[in-house]
């Protein structure tokens, strides 16, 4: 059995977001790029599952859609412990384009279980996993906060609006994962970093797809008014302001 973890290359979560060319392009000047946080947790859990599966899970592969600028991120995924990697050599134009590229990788290599992060921390679309499953005709389980493998079967814990559900699912399946899937992301050690250099990283050309969506321009939200301070001894005043000024109670 083989697991594919889809990786998105995103700006560091502390990046100050700026735009250029009349607010039409995200300004990447000085941006540090990282593995999308949820994808990093997904990779961590996939490796844990492989290590405790008694050989049932043979391989964990990572795949990304990105230009050469995404290579340090995919190498880091190899350093964390992925066995091999694919990079589809193109800008990830939109969610559908990205999902269509990843679908080609899955079809070619025959993965049984695919992990995608619940969204990428840049455009926050959260659509690649769902689209990928539909293109492939696979089942999908979303907002997964735990995955376990016991006696040859996977169980998934998913969060719903109003609770949690435990599910079983027939493979092949796409699991779209969120926080909780692993507690902390695995950090590459020196040996992992050395090994990553010689692990296979296969670059493949992009397949052509329809261009469904495109970003026209960006806007920053209006600046907030200055914070009104209320004396800690006077909570009646705060309640009064929330009632008469903010009108939220």
């Amino acid at each position: 059995m083989k697991i594919l973890v889809c990786i998105s290359n995103v700006p560091d979560t502390t990046t100050k977001i700026r735009f250029k060319d009349n607010n039409s392009v995200f300004d990447t000047t000085g941006v540090q790029w990282i593995i999308n946080p949820w994808d990093e947790l997904a990779l961590t859990r996939a490796l844990e599952l492989k290590e405790t599966s008694g050989g049932a899970i043979e391989k964990v592969t990572v795949a990304t859609v990105g230009l050469t600028g995404a290579e340090p991120t995919i190498r880091k995924a190899l350093a964390i412990g992925a066995d091999d990697a694919f990079r589809v050599d193109s800008d990830p134009v939109d969610a559908y384009f990205t999902a269509a590229q990843l679908a080609e990788v899955v079809k070619k290599e025959g993965y049984d279980l695919v992990f995608c992060g619940i969204e990428s921390s840049d455009y926050n679309g959260g659509a690649v996993g769902g689209m990928l499953s539909e293109i492939l005709g696979f089942a999908s389980i979303s907002s997964v906060s735990a995955v376990n493998y016991e006696n040859g079967a996977f169980t998934f814990l998913r969060e719903i609006d109003g609770g949690k559900e435990t599910l079983s699912g027939n493979l092949p399946l796409v699991a779209i994962v969120q926080k909780g899937i692993a507690i902390n992301p695995r950090i590459p050690n020196m040996r992992g970093i050395m090994n990553a250099r010689s692990k296979p990283l296969v670059v493949i050309p992009a397949a052509s797809t329809d261009n469904q969506t495109q970003y026209v321009n960006y806007e920053l939200p209006p600046a907030k008014a200055k914070c009104k301070m209320v004396d800690a001894e006077n909570m009646t005043e705060l309640v009064h302001l929330l009632h008469t000024e903010a009108k939220v109670i």
Binding site: T13, I17, F19, F26, S121, D122, Y123, N124, D210, N211, Q212, T213, Q214, Y215, V216, N217, Y218, E219, L220, P221
Partner: peptide, 17 residues
């Protein structure tokens, strides 16, 4: 308009379909 970059901005998205 949609939210992007974790609430720090809005993006205007054109849908061609």
């Amino acid at each position: 308009p949609k939210k992007a970059f974790n609430g720090s901005s809005f993006a205007n998205l054109k849908i061609n379909t």
